[in-house]
C-alpha cells in the first residue's frame, strides 16, 4: 500500500543546537507526552485484552494488582463465547450485512460518483452537495420513521432491515470519497478511452475503475467497517438473538440484568476490534487523501 509519510520538519519545538541538556529534556518531554497520549489511547484495549484472558478468580479479586495476570491466562471465556453464546452467528450476520451493504453501496455510489466527477449536467453540483449533506442526517433523527418502514416491509427483527438501511449512510459517504478518487484520474484518460472506442460507461469500467482500484478498495473497507461499527439502527430494528450483529449482541445479550459476563464481553469486543484496527491502519492514508481529495478537488 502506497503511504504518504507525513513528515514536516521539526518546526514544533525549536532547540538551540549544542545544548545537550536542553535537548535531552526536550526529548524526554516529547516522549513523556507521547507516552501519556498513548496510554490514554491504548489502555482500554489493553484492559480488554487482560480481561479476556484472566481467570474469574483473578479478575474479581480486589487485592491483587489487576494490571497483570496473577493466575495463568485462560482461554475459557473465549471458549464460552464461542460455545455458549450466539457469538458465531453474530459474526456471520455482521459479515453478511457488511458484504451486502458494500455491494449495494458500490452499485449505487460508483455510477453516482463517476457522473458527479466527470459529467456536466444541469444541477449536478446541487445534487452532489445534496447527496453529501444527507450524511449529516443522523440515525437518531430517522430511526423512528425508519422503524415503521421496516415494520411495513416485514423486515423488522431481521438482518435484512440493516442491509436496507445501512446504505443510507454508506452511499453519501462513499460517493463523496469516490468522487475524490475519480477526480484524481485525469479527464483526458476517459476521453482517450472514448475516442479509442469505449462508450461513457465502457470508459468507467475499462479505465477509471482499474486505475482507481486502491480508492475502491479503501471505500470497500470503510463502508464495511462503518456497518460493523453501527449500533443505533441495529439496536432499534433487531431484537431477535439470531439476527443480531456483533456490536449489538455483545453489548446487549452478554449482559443479563446486572450480571455482566465481562470476560466474554471483552473477548467478543477484542475479536471484532482487532481486524478493524488492522484494516484501518492499512488504508488510512488513502482514506485521508480521499476525504481531502473530495474537498479540495
Amino acid at each position: 500500500m502506497a503511504s504518504t509519510d507525513l513528515v514536516v520538519g521539526d518546526f514544533a519545538i525549536e532547540h538551540a543546537p549544542g545544548h545537550r541538556m536542553r535537548r535531552f529534556f526536550s526529548s524526554a518531554a516529547f516522549w513523556l507526552t507521547i507516552g501519556a497520549f498513548l496510554l490514554f489511547a491504548v489502555f482500554p484495549v489493553y484492559w480488554m485484552f487482560v480481561t479476556t484472558f484472566k481467570q474469574i478468580n483473578d479478575l474479581y479479586s480486589l487485592d491483587e494488582n489487576p494490571l497483570i495476570f496473577n493466575l495463568a491466562p485462560t482461554l475459557e471465556h473465549v471458549q464460552f463465547l464461542w460455545d455458549q453464546t450466539r457469538y458465531p452467528t453474530w459474526l456471520v450476520n455482521t459479515v453478511e450485512i457488511g458484504v451486502f451493504t458494500v455491494i449495494i453501496t458500490l452499485l449505487v455510489s460508483i455510477p453516482a460518483a463517476y457522473a458527479l466527477a466527470r459529467s456536466r449536467f444541469p444541477g449536478s453540483g446541487t445534487l452532489g452537495i445534496g447527496i453529501f449533506l444527507t450524511y449529516l442526517i443522523p440515525p437518531t433523527l430517522l430511526f423512528l420513521p425508519l422503524s415503521q418502514i421496516v415494520v411495513g416491509l416485514g423486515l423488522i427483527n431481521t438482518r435484512w432491515s440493516l442491509v436496507l438501511v445501512y446504505p443510507t449512510f454508506t452511499i453519501p459517504f462513499c460517493t463523496w470519497l469516490l468522487m475524490g478518487f475519480f477526480r484524481g484520474v485525469p479527464r483526458e484518460m476517459t476521453e482517450a478511452a472514448r475516442v479509442d472506442g469505449c462508450s461513457r460507461l465502457g470508459a468507467l469500467f475499462r479505465v477509471v475503475l482499474p486505475v482507481s482500484l486502491p480508492g475502491i478498495l479503501t471505500v470497500v473497507i470503510f463502508a464495511f467497517t462503518l456497518t460493523m461499527q453501527e449500533y443505533v439502527y441495529a439496536l432499534t430494528f433487531v431484537s431477535e438473538q439470531t439476527e443480531k450483529t456483533v456490536t449489538l449482541g455483545v453489548s446487549a445479550d452478554l449482559i443479563r440484568g446486572d450480571v455482566f459476563a465481562w470476560s466474554s464481553l471483552m473477548a467478543g469486543a477484542l475479536i471484532i476490534s482487532v481486524p478493524v484496527a488492522i484494516a484501518y491502519n492499512f488504508f488510512l492514508d488513502t482514506f485521508v487523501k480521499g476525504i481531502t481529495g473530495g474537498a479540495v478537488k
Partner: peptide, 30 residues
C-alpha cells in the same frame, strides 16, 4: 506510534463505550 494511536477510532463505538464502562465499574474499576 501512529498505528497504536488510531486504535480508539477503529474500535466500534459501542465496544469502546462498554469497555470504558467496565473500566469505570463501581466495584472493579481498574
Amino acid at each position: 506510534v501512529r498505528a497504536l494511536f488510531i486504535i480508539p477510532f477503529t474500535v466500534p463505538v459501542a465496544i469502546g463505550a462498554i469497555t470504558w464502562s467496565w473500566m469505570l465499574n463501581p466495584q472493579y474499576s481498574v
